[in-house]
């Protein structure tokens, strides 16, 4: 696990339609210690995905620096696993091959990476679906595969951009519980983007509220773990933290 630090990060896009520059992020500085679970919330368009895409190495910052374990980011890399809102599973690979793709890229022999992939699929109750193709799975199942595909590569940092936004509410809660359980077990550094405030509070150790491309406030979440919805929905500390963050987001 590695630390992640953003140093005075900024991003200016050139808007083709308006023909002008638009600054999506101003001077973002953030330190995420190794093994911490940070959620970033904020209204639509405040720059959440922009931060994540820069950390993932998909787009370059306009200013500032991103350090992973002290090293500057220069593009996508296996040290940063990404879980996409659109799942982004390879349709031409079976579930097992999808999950084994990271290990395959590392040169792990077939038998061994199949075993790794099966273990990870077992973690989310999908061992039985190993030989199916992604389009034969439900959305919730596909996203479970997306999560374990990133995990199976043992990244130092796990980046997730609204990964549960496109599944139904019931499935979303199950996925959230599975994710906290896995996180407690393996303690990866996680940056989780969402605009669902209860989701952020439920999952994270710290919630960063973003507003118009700046960090508005950071809220620590000292709730005990393991966290399960049955208990937290009634929990006063959870409720007041959620309300606090919600008020910040609405003011944002």
């Amino acid at each position: 696990m590695k630390t992640l630090s953003l140093k005075s990060l900024s991003k200016t896009y050139f808007d083709l339609y308006a023909g002008s520059h638009h600054t999506a992020l101003h001077d973002i500085s953030l330190d995420v210690p190794a093994g911490e679970f940070v959620a970033i919330v904020g209204p639509s368009g405040c720059g959440k995905s922009t931060i994540l895409n820069m950390v993932a190495g998909f787009i370059a910052p306009s200013g500032g620096e991103i350090l992973v374990g002290g090293e500057p980011v220069r593009g996508p890399g296996a040290d940063r696993g990404v879980v996409f809102q659109s799942f982004a599973l390879f349709p031409w690979k079976t579930v097992l091959e999808n999950v084994g793709f990271g290990p395959k890229m590392r040169g792990v022999p077939k038998a061994e990476r199949d075993e790794i992939a099966r273990d990870y699929l077992g973690l989310v109750g999908l061992a039985h679906a190993a030989d199916r193709y992604p389009n034969e799975l439900s959305g919730g199942m596909q996203q479970r595969v997306g999560v374990v595909r990133a995990l199976a590569n043992e990244p130092d940092i796990l980046l997730m951009d609204e990964p549960f936004a496109s599944v139904d509410a019931q499935t979303r809660m199950t996925l959230q519980e599975e994710l906290t359980r896995i996180w407690e077990d393996r303690r990866p550094t996680v940056v989780f983007i969402t605009h669902d405030v209860p989701e952020a509070v439920f999952l994270a150790n710290r919630v960063v509220v973003l507003s118009k491309g700046r960090i508005l406030e950071q809220v620590e979440v000292p709730l005990a773990r393991p966290r399960v919805w049955d208990r937290l929905v009634e929990d006063d500390a959870f409720k007041s933290l959620s309300n606090k963050v919600l008020a910040l987001v609405r003011a944002a």
Partner: peptide, 14 residues
């Protein structure tokens, strides 16, 4: 889709 290429790159594909 771009996310597929991004996903592959993030999983270490050269």
């Amino acid at each position: 889709p771009m996310p597929l290429r991004h996903a592959a790159a993030s999983l270490g594909a050269g």
